[in-house]
């Protein structure tokens, strides 16, 4: 017995398991158990008060014919149309800062600032800024651009793009910092050689920066894609509550709404499971892209 323990203590595998144990325990308790519970609840009808009633796959069948679910999924997919701006915007800013423009450190700080703000604060701020009689519209009217004044957050035509631009603004700083880290790894001689060959800024961006930071771009694109499904809830909650109508209703908000306002935790869990599958699909795409790159 003593010998076995000694062998175990000397084993690399055992040591690894020992060190991994706390993290695995946290993962098990706070990831796997909730997912298992949510999966069970997705097969029930449960109002949170009485015992759950087993309904099998009924919740999933209902999702298939639920226009609100499809509307929310459509909104999630519409947000992905902004992906090029979301992915390339921080890259362009990072390139400009990296090129050593005057005040680069100041701009880096300013651009990163939203990243340290709570989404609730950001939501409250833009709620005030974008009111019909709010500062933005007051400014537009004062400079003779009254025609551009809008009900930014309550007009179905403008609300989703406005909200997405707020997400992008809020995550711009993190994206920029990540790209700056990637740019620091690019061999400066490549730029010097390109400049000697007469390459302009756009050509250097296209032919050096993008290829050299491609892996980071991939990572950031996947991160943003996953985020649009899983981390926009606080913005929706504070800015629009999914409205007007269902104009900004997203899947993660639907999970909350179905549970706590619709009073059906079973159905909400089913929507959550579908969301999990979707996000897993996005993650799968990420791994596929990364492995292809490695190959």
């Amino acid at each position: 017995m003593k010998g076995m323990l000694q062998r175990l203590a000397g084993s690399t595998v055992a040591a690894s398991l020992l060190f991994l144990m706390p993290a695995l325990l946290v993962l098990f308790l706070f990831r796997l158990v909730p997912i298992e519970q949510a999966f069970y609840l997705s097969l029930t009808s449960w109002n949170g008060g009485t015992d759950p009633v087993w309904v099998g796959l009924a919740n999933f069948e209902r999702i298939a014919g639920d226009p609100v679910f499809w509307r929310a999924l459509t909104n999630n997919l519409l947000i992905l149309l902004f992906l090029p701006l979301w992915v390339l915007g921080p890259l362009v800013i990072a390139v400009i800062i990296h090129s050593g423009v005057p005040g680069a450190k100041f701009f880096r700080l300013m651009i990163f600032l939203p990243a340290v703000l709570s989404p609730v604060v950001i939501g409250a701020y833009f709620n005030v800024l974008l009111k019909y009689k709010g500062p933005l519209n007051v400014f537009l009217r004062s400079v003779g651009l009254e025609g551009f004044a809008r009900q930014w957050l309550t007009d179905p035509a403008t609300v989703l793009p406005t909200m997405v631009l707020i997400f992008i603004w809020a995550t711009l700083g993190i994206g920029t910092i990540i790209y700056l880290a990637a740019l620091a790894q690019v061999n400066a001689e490549l730029y010097e050689a390109a400049e000697l060959d007469g390459a302009n800024w756009l050509q250097r961006l296209r032919d050096i920066t993008v290829p050299e930071t491609w892996r980071t771009i991939e990572f950031w694109a996947i991160f943003v894609m996953v985020s649009t499904f899983t981390t926009v809830f606080p913005y929706v909650y504070t800015l629009t509550r999914g409205g007007p109508g269902y104009s900004t209703y997203l899947l993660d908000y639907y999970v909350y709404d179905a549970a706590f306002f619709g009073g059906n935790f079973g159905y909400a869990s089913a929507v959550g499971m579908v969301l999990l599958v979707l996000v897993t699909g996005v993650c799968g795409l990420a791994f596929f892209l990364l492995r292809r790159r490695q190959a």
Binding site: P156, P244, G245, F261, G263
Partner: peptide, 20 residues
Amino acid sequence: RQDVVFEWMRLFQDVIAGSL
């Protein structure tokens, strides 16, 4: 029923906006 109330609130916003 409260789900009907919440639905009315959303739908009426759409009606006001002219979407429905």
